[in-house]
């Protein structure tokens, strides 16, 4: 828990009304919502951005986000839902505690998440494709949760051949003993 994080404080606050809570995540209503039915799904632990959230927390948090979306459909007559993450300041993130927005949508609610498509040439798209492919090579060995996790500072995950990136530094911090 970060003492100066309002969301960490909220999570720890027994008085604060939680819509859902388990050992990994907490769901609260946004008290300045986009509209009626705006939920925030947050890991209990403080991670500023998504890249720092362990894989098994990611999968769990979004599984809960899906359930919250269903709850909005079923209990508040939502006609649609949006699930939005603002990751990083440039991504529009407003507080340093990673969270998932789950927002109920209704006809004529005045919200608009539709972007204006950029015109990119075939050549530009091909370049982008190659740049992305280069960086996605290391995706694939996901961190899973173990029953009794023990924090290890030094243990390093096996890195797929050909990737000497320093990106796996996070793993050093968060990896659990198999």
């Amino acid at each position: 828990m970060k003492n100066d994080c309002v969301y960490c404080q909220m999570i720890a606050d027994k008085e604060k009304e939680k819509i859902y809570e388990d050992e990994k995540v907490v769901v609260v209503l946004d008290d300045k919502p986009a509209g009626p039915g705006h939920l925030l799904v947050m890991p209990k632990q403080h991670y500023p951005i998504m890249e720092q959230v362990p894989d098994f927390i990611m999968s769990h948090a979004f599984t809960i986000a899906n359930k919250m979306s269903i709850a909005l459909f079923e209990s508040l007559n939502a006609q649609g839902t949006n699930i939005v993450v603002n990751n990083g300041l440039a991504g529009g993130q407003e507080s340093a505690h990673f969270m998932i927005n789950v927002i109920a949508r209704r006809e004529g609610d005045g919200m608009n998440f539709q972007w204006v498509p950029r015109q990119l040439s075939e050549e530009e798209m091909s370049t982008i494709e190659l740049q992305m492919k280069e960086q996605t090579k290391t995706i694939g060995e996901f961190q899973s949760e173990k029953a009794k996790p023990i924090e290890m500072e030094t243990k390093v995950r096996r890195i797929p051949a050909g990737s000497e990136d320093r990106e796996n530094y996070l793993v050093k911090r968060f990896i659990k003993i198999p």
């Binding site: 939005v84 993450v85 440039a90 960086q135």
Partner: peptide, 17 residues
Amino acid sequence: AFKAQGTNIFIANGVVA
């Protein structure tokens, strides 16, 4: 890949969304 400084994850469930 793009020296991006952030990202958005976006999901639309339903035509209205």
